[in-house]
């Protein structure tokens, strides 16, 4: 079936199907039940599956995430919703010290079929404590897998796959994507959870991005096309592991690389992507790779400064124009 659907609805659909199919799947988090979820992802599920499987929690992030860890250890498939990544900072003990370590420390005796979903990113004037992007924090933790869907189709696929996986998986959802629309086609076979996808073919340069900024990069590519610059755009879809092969194959054709990320530039995801790809295809690159990233500053509240602190379409276009392209 082929339909237009909102990003939140795709997540809702994935969860509904998983809960109907497998009684070990349950979700917990603040206002996921009666209220229907801050971004509506759990809408309708409380009345359908009851309060025990759609559990409203107190504001106790570390402990309810830890609860998910404990339940996962004995075979349940918990989905923990942390209202935003900013509050995940309070649950890092459960995420990093527990979820990411237990399977290994136990010598492989325990699996960790746990999904932790969290919206993040810069939205609209939510100020410094509510605008964080913590992919770098999670990426630096061996044992966590991180999916970053940018479309309803990916949101549906990756959330479904995450629930079925026996590893702890972080689903980073962007706050400005919940009400974006896209096609959900249930007849095509899902891509593997961590496979990157070339969203636009091009021959002059490669842009690698993820989550909302993969879409911003596509907009930039359209503008560049009008100027005769043919841009390939890769949506990573995953930040751990990263599908290096798809990236390398692209660079071998375009020889130029821009990495676009909303997160702060210093020690961010882009730093990892650029250094790995430089190591692996140094001689394929005609020019130094460029990172277009957020400023190394807490997000200002003022709307104009907020926008200026993260990459906009124009910033990406300007970076691409800086390349010396073969005429």
């Amino acid at each position: 079936m082929h339909e237009e659907i909102l990003y939140w609805q795709a997540l809702n659909r994935a969860l509904d199907i998983a809960m109907a199919k497998d009684s070990s799947v349950f979700i917990l988090g603040e206002d996921v039940g009666l209220f229907g979820g801050t971004y509506r992802v759990t809408e309708g599920l409380y009345s359908k599956y009851g309060e025990a499987r759609v559990r409203d929690t107190p504001i106790s992030e570390n402990s309810f995430t830890g609860l998910g860890v404990g339940a996962a250890m004995i075979g349940m498939r918990p989905v923990v919703e942390i209202m935003t990544v900013n509050f995940a900072l309070l649950a890092l003990d459960a995420i990093i010290n527990m979820a990411a370590k237990i399977p290994f420390m136990s010598g492989g005796q325990y699996a960790m079929p746990l999904v932790i979903r969290m919206p993040g990113g810069v939205a609209k004037q939510l100020a410094a404590q509510h605008s964080q992007r913590l992919e770098h924090t999670m990426m630096n933790v061996p044992g966590l897998r991180i999916a970053v869907p940018s479309t309803p189709q990916d949101a549906f696929w990756q959330f479904s796959q995450a629930i079925e996986s026996d590893d702890p998986i972080i689903l980073l959802e962007h706050e400005l994507l919940y009400f974006t629309k896209g096609v959900l086609d249930s007849s095509i076979e899902a891509l593997p959870m961590h496979k990157a996808q070339v969203r636009r073919k091009g021959k002059h340069l490669t842009i690698i991005s993820y989550s909302k900024h993969a879409l911003v990069s596509l907009q930039a590519a359209e503008q560049l096309a009008q100027q005769g610059i043919d841009t390939e755009v890769i949506d990573l879809r995953s930040l751990s592991p990263i599908d290096w092969e798809t990236c390398i194959e692209s660079i071998q054709r375009t020889h130029r690389l821009i990495v676009v990320e909303e997160d702060c530039k210093f020690a961010g995801a882009g730093a990892e992507i650029v250094s790995e790809l430089t190591e692996r295809c140094f001689f394929e690159l005609d020019e130094a790779p460029i990172r277009v990233a957020g400023m190394n500053i807490p997000t200002p509240f003022n709307a104009k400064l907020e926008a200026a602190s993260i990459p906009q379409v124009e910033d990406i276009v300007a970076a691409a124009q800086g390349f010396r392209l073969p005429s």
Binding site: Q125, A127, A128, Q129, H130, P300, F301, N302, A303, L305
Partner: peptide
């Protein structure tokens, strides 16, 4: 979010 705000427009309502 203006310059003459008590936090110069950096903090906002919260």
């Amino acid at each position: 979010g203006r310059r003459d705000g008590i936090c110069k427009g950096m903090g906002g309502s919260m």
